[in-house]
């Protein structure tokens, strides 16, 4: 049952990712990417990461992709222009390298963490059932990773300032 649902999401994600990179229109690409991100959010739920799945939808599929679409619209690239896909030599190179990479990554797909490092089956699921899915991540985030978390705020601030500086016509 779970595996079936997983493969449905996985299939949607892969197909829409493929469409994302092959559609001529940037807007279409962006929309297919959003679908991929939604599917990934579904897979995240299946992998007991409900909170991250929610963030995926809110932050990625929502905020970031809206930003992308916004810029595409702003630059007026939505209209059907000349294709930005490369010619046949470029396509062949892209396909070849992509397949090669997939093959190499496929080879390591079956690697699993060593037995003694592994949590018991369903441990994360039980934990989120008992304490709530947010608690699972927040516990680690605000204890072990407190300083990186705070630094993230600085990073975001810097990004905001940087974006303003870059995008503004005249300071």
């Amino acid at each position: 049952m779970v595996l079936g649902v997983f493969w449905v999401f996985a299939g949607v994600a892969i197909v829409s990712a493929f469409l994302c990179i092959t559609r001529r229109s940037p807007v279409a690409s962006a929309l297919w990417l959003i679908l991929t991100l939604f599917s990934l959010a579904g897979i995240f739920v299946l992998l007991d990461a409900q909170f991250i799945a929610a963030l995926q939808v809110l932050v990625y599929a929502g905020a970031i992709m809206v930003l992308f679409l916004f810029v595409i619209m702003l630059l007026n690239l939505g209209r059907q222009g000349p294709s930005d896909l490369r010619g046949w030599p470029g396509r062949l190179v892209a396909a070849a390298l992509g397949l090669l990479l997939a093959a190499e990554l496929w080879a390591v797909r079956t690697w699993a963490p060593e037995e003694h490092l592994r949590l018991p089956e369903g441990a994360i699921a039980r934990m989120s059932e008992a304490e709530g899915p947010v608690h699972v991540i927040s516990d680690a985030l605000f204890r072990e990773y407190l300083i990186p978390f705070e630094l993230t705020s600085v990073l975001l601030l810097a990004a905001i300032v940087g974006a303003v500086v870059l995008a503004k016509r005249r300071l």
């Binding site: 390298l97 090669l100 990479l101 190499e104 990554l105 080879a107 390591v108």
Partner: peptide, 12 residues
């Protein structure tokens, strides 16, 4: 990407 492929090959 070529460099990555080679590195991956070596490390795997």
């Amino acid at each position: 990407v070529l460099g990555t492929l080679v590195l991956l090959r070596v490390m795997a």
